[in-house]
């Protein structure tokens, strides 16, 4: 049967269900979000979220940003296809400003130095995510292994457990160097392999 005109089957591992903001970040403690906000406040808004590719840094940011009501947040997201900062970033910020750069390691050394100097000179906060330490105070280290199984279980619809038959989540996470995103891509493909009636 042609795939054209066929009602698409929902894949629970589609981007719309797994992208940052679609699933809440899982904190180890019930007050994890409040503790993180307090920690950021205690460093005057300076901090870094560090973790491997696909381990939940942007998902953590999506949960954290709405809770930063005490800050005037400017959020910049960088990736391999978007490595430049907005030209208006270096105008003097308002008091209480917090610059959030998701993917800070995408910037070159000089650009990172310029951002840090700008924030320090104007007394604004700087919160970044990166794959490795950027020399800022550690706010959080993401580790998908701690919550991967529970998150995947939440994504599964009723009677969808078959997709995990013979699938070792922890082993696949190790194979992908801690990237939960890559594990979810694998599960997306497994889901597509289910025979259709």
């Amino acid at each position: 049967m042609s795939r054209v005109g066929r009602a698409p089957r929902v894949n629970p591992f589609s981007t719309r269900f797994t992208q940052p903001g679609a699933i809440p970040f899982r904190f180890a403690a019930a007050d994890g979000l409040a503790a993180l906000v307090a920690k950021l406040d205690s460093t005057n808004g300076w901090g870094q979220i560090v973790g491997p590719h696909g381990s939940g840094k942007s998902t953590l940011l999506a949960s954290l940003l709405p809770a930063l009501s005490g800050w005037k947040v400017r959020h910049v997201r960088l990736d391999t296809s978007h490595r430049t900062l907005p030209p208006d970033l270096f105008v003097p910020p308002e008091p209480g400003a917090l610059l959030v750069v998701d993917g800070f390691e995408q910037l070159g050394v000089l650009a990172r130095f310029r951002v840090r100097r700008h924030c320090r000179l104007h007394g604004s906060g700087l919160l970044v995510t990166a794959h490795r330490s950027m020399g800022l105070p550690d706010l959080h280290r993401t580790n998908a292994a701690a919550h991967a199984a529970a998150l995947i279980a939440d994504l599964l619809p009723p009677h969808g457990e078959w997709v995990l038959d013979g699938f070792d989540i922890a082993a696949r996470l190790r194979h992908h160097r801690g990237s939960l995103r890559e594990v979810l891509f694998e599960l997306y493909d497994r889901w597509e392999c289910e025979p259709r009636v």
């Binding site: 795939r3 054209v4 005109g5 066929r6 698409p8 089957r9 894949n11 589609s14 493909d189």
Partner: peptide, 12 residues
């Protein structure tokens, strides 16, 4: 676009 139930992309 027509409805499509592809593997990499679907049109709902």
């Amino acid at each position: 676009p027509w409805s499509y139930d592809g593997t990499l992309v679907k049109v709902h």
